[in-house]
Amino acid sequence: MRIRQPRALACASLSLVFTAAAATTVCGGLISRAQAQVKAVNPTPATNRVLRIGAIPDQKPEKLNRLYGLLSNELSRQLGFKVRYVPVTDYAAAVTAFRTGDLDLVWFGGLTGVQARLQKPGARVLAQRDIDVQFHSVFIANARSGLKPVLNVKGLSQLKGKRFTFGSESSTSGRLMPQVFLAKAGVKLTDFSGGAPGFSGSHDATIALVQSGAYDAGAVNEQVWKSSLHDRKVDRSKVIAIWRTPGYPDYHWIAQGDLDTRFGKGTTDRITAALVSLRRTNPSQAPILELFGAQQFVPAKADQYATIEKVGREIGKIR
């Protein structure tokens, strides 16, 4: 080992430490989005109230950021207080953030919504899209997989031995309901190639992975599938739809039970009214509904999701 090193080296090493330290501090100061993601706002003082909205990350983050950015502005304009979108990275984290009070109003799926309400008594179901009353999943397949479109649920048995991916573990349209229909066709999760299904994380990811051939088949949310077809994001020569499930209730808005005490009397009803009043004919509201893939929002009730709760319990995702 060298005992004595030139003094210059010492200076160089120390100045490197300084530079690295300064750089990280500056980077730390630049944080905006990433910080918003983890940073929670503690119980807000009455003078500076912010309604924090969130959503399960079911699609590409760019799309979510655009969608909820527009929605936050619109709600903020109608309600008269600040509305901020706080992104989260997975479905379970959205549920947890709602329970710990880090999110005030969340766009949940059927299953995550039930999980959230069970974990946070007093939470209120506000509204859903017109399409959520009877929502559908679509089973898709890679064109080279040899899988063919089928007419009824029994046809799903052809998926045995194939490489299959769900979306998120807690997705209603990308996992829960598809798993229910697979069970009706006699397909168990261990029947897939490799002994287990994949969990791609989101519907966009499922489409991309099946289209590429990384998986033979997958299950996706019909609205995301349709909008990908519409935007020509899907190469129809590589990926095809093989079956559309019967309808079931899905996505909905859930709010904390204490919004009226924190934001003023009647706030919860005003939020519902604001959501339900969005119209395609209004130029500033049309892009929001367009991105949601809906004509409009309609009021929703908790008991609509009783069936989801039932199958969720059967599969063990709700306890």
Partner: peptide, 18 residues
């Protein structure tokens, strides 16, 4: 990568959306 903040989050999201 598991959503607890920082660059790992971006890495996972960009990988998942290819």
């Amino acid at each position: 990568v598991f959503g607890l903040g920082g660059l790992g989050t971006d890495l996972r999201l960009t990988l998942q959306s290819l």
